[in-house]
Design a protein around this nucleic acid. Structure first.
Lengths: 202, 202
DNA sequence: CTCGTTATAGTCCACATGGAGTATTCGACG
DNA sequence: CGTCGAATACTCCATGTGGACTATAACGAG
């Protein structure tokens, strides 16, 4: 039983539900549909992903075509196993949250190496960038709705908006606390004995 | 100029600010402090990360010790270049959001392959799991505050809480719209001509 | 009609990741 | 006092990732 599919593999399989394609065409389609905002799309990774799908019987070759005098291309078709594997993976991703590791908490966790002033300035800059992104996403979603794209295709955008709002709220909380001095930035910070665990309860 | 540091590399450098350590000790310290919830910590990756830091002059060997009769261990010390590189990286992460790719939007984006009932049931299950996680994080933060851990060390937890709340709101929105029928789950979905772009504006 | 540009359709290879394994030592239990 | 499990401190290698490169064709500007 071949293991977990990567997000890019799932996107590829989903495209093949519609019709057979060659990898380059998948990449184009994903880009045209804006799905490359949700899935990290790098061409070589896509080719590798398709290779693995082939190896695992999730897709099969449907022919090597020479259309016009373009470079050779291998087209793939979805198998029943591939379809099933994709659905299983989607369900698994929906069913339970998996640990993901955004860098922002790490950065803030080490931000005490910076001066309070620097942190304030840099976070203020970030705040602006996040606001701008929020604006862009809103506009994309609204434009799509106007064009008649069904709501359920835009749920990812709604999620992004929620996340951006959460980030804004959090940045604002930090900036407020930095200003009010509630964040004790200049206190000596513990080195040897972390107070995170009284690890000697014996 | 060596490139971007990985999150794990930054955590390693941050530990070395306190005192020289060997990799295994870094791993233990990160775990004791609960930082392995923010940074993905796998022992082999840590060794590789330290190797790269050594190669790039961010750390130097400070001796191969045999304490007691334990296996040999190589201890590393931070260099000035390493300290600077870490601060630069932290500032870069704070200054601007970088594209990250959570799987949930991808999964929801392909969820139309599932039946409405299945999506509802699976998302309801997820909702419970997210609630439980939110509870756990809250308790961890409160416990740490009680022990006198400074606020600024717990900003990551606050961020997690904001994000979990955002996810809950989003799940609830989907479940509501699925129930009310606002999400037109059973409509025929476009295959050949995506309405995402009228890609013929000529 | 030639020359730089963009689009097509990929491949190469250097690098990063992480499950599983190794080898030694310490501590506890019978 | 032997052995069995856990901790210590790594290493191996299969797999995944992605910047840079290749090679051909169509396209437009001079």
């Amino acid at each position: 039983m071949a293991d977990d599919l990567t997000p890019l593999a799932v996107s590829a399989l989903a495209l093949l539900v519609e019709r057979p394609m060659h990898p380059y065409e998948m990449a184009q389609t994903l880009r045209v549909r804006g799905q490359d905002l949700d899935v990290k799309l790098r061409v070589p990774s896509l080719y590798h992903a398709v290779e693995r799908l082939l190896r695992d019987g999730h897709v099969e070759e449907v022919g090597v075509g020479r259309e016009g005098k373009r470079p050779e291309r291998t087209t793939y078709r979805l198998t029943a196993a591939g379809r099933a594997a994709m659905e299983t993976q989607v369900v698994a991703w929906l069913r339970q949250p998996r640990a993901e590791y955004p860098v922002l908490p790490v950065a803030v966790g080490e931000a005490h190496f910076l001066s309070r002033a620097q942190v304030e300035s840099v976070l203020a800059e970030r705040r602006g960038a996040v606001l701008a992104e929020r604006d862009t996403v809103t506009r994309m979603r609204d434009a799509a709705l106007d064009k008649g794209v069904p709501r359920r295709m835009l749920l990812g955008k709604e999620y992004s908006l929620h996340r951006l709002d959460a980030e804004l709220a959090w940045i604002d909380a930090i900036l407020t606390d930095l200003d009010s001095g509630a964040l004790d930035w200049d206190q000596p910070f513990l080195t040897s004995t972390p107070p995170f665990t009284e690890q000697d309860p014996s």
